[in-house]
Design a binder for these strands. Structure first.
Lengths: 129, 129
DNA sequence: GCAATATCAGTAATGATTACTATTATTGAG
DNA sequence: CTCAATAATAGTAATCATTACTGATATTGC
């Protein structure tokens, strides 16, 4: 059985993600932590991000265009991706219907969850153009 | 202005996708077409898939794990991804609520669409285990 | 038939991510 | 505290999916 050992690098990653609402990529995380720990390796960032996501401590967000993003908030919530500038942001929805149940209705397998993100122009790109 | 010219390779890709309900990857498409056209290049497959998706003739499906999948059915519909075997299949939902409108309610930008896929065990993997 | 040009095959390059390896750091036990 | 076990690291190489490049080929309208 594999026990988790403390690492300064992992702690920095968790702390950094907790301060950010913009769901940065591995590369952005790497560049920021490098300012405090110049020797940290990009592989270490990726390894810890994968580990933390497996543990359910963070969320990995894959949008099929560009690199993955990471969210320090592990609670289920929704995201918006701007097709103009690529920004990723949280999207507060207070009354989302239970679409897993709707989807299960005519399906013979087992639905355990879903991936959903919204596309469009963010508030900034909407007002600029 | 760029006009589209006929190509045997592109026609084969469209025809092949039309016969498949399992949303194959570029590599699978390549291997199948190679049986009829041994000289076709993987780059040609990718280029045509991107072109057809841009034209709206097919759909490109990105799930963040593994390569992209392609769907010959361009009409909006839903997909299910099996977390056991990786199979991608269509998911018929007759009464999906209008979640774009729900999402727009508290959002100051412009929502033009969303990406949604369901996860779980496909009918086969559900019965096997 | 011919010129214009979209498309091709083949290959090289890119970008994101993962794997490998020798070294370092953390941890619990004595 | 010292030490052995082993998780984690830095640095680098390798992998995978995809895109870009280039000179040759195929399609199209005239």
């Amino acid at each position: 059985m594999k026990t988790l050992k403390y690492s300064r690098q992992r702690e920095s990653i968790v702390n950094f993600l907790a301060t950010r609402k913009d769901h940065p990529t591995a590369d952005v995380i790497y560049e920021h932590i490098r300012m405090e720990q110049p020797n940290i390796s990009l592989g270490t960032v990726y390894r810890n991000l994968a580990l933390l996501a497996d543990l359910g401590a963070i969320q990995k967000l894959s949008y099929g265009i560009g690199p993955d993003h990471f969210d320090g908030n592990a609670m289920p919530h929704y995201h918006f991706v701007c097709t103009e500038c690529g920004a990723v942001s949280d999207l507060d929805i207070d009354d989302m219907p239970d679409i897993s149940t709707v989807a299960s209705r005519n399906f013979k397998g087992t639905i355990t969850g879903y991936c959903l993100h919204f596309l469009g122009k963010c508030p900034h790109c909407t007002t600029v153009n």
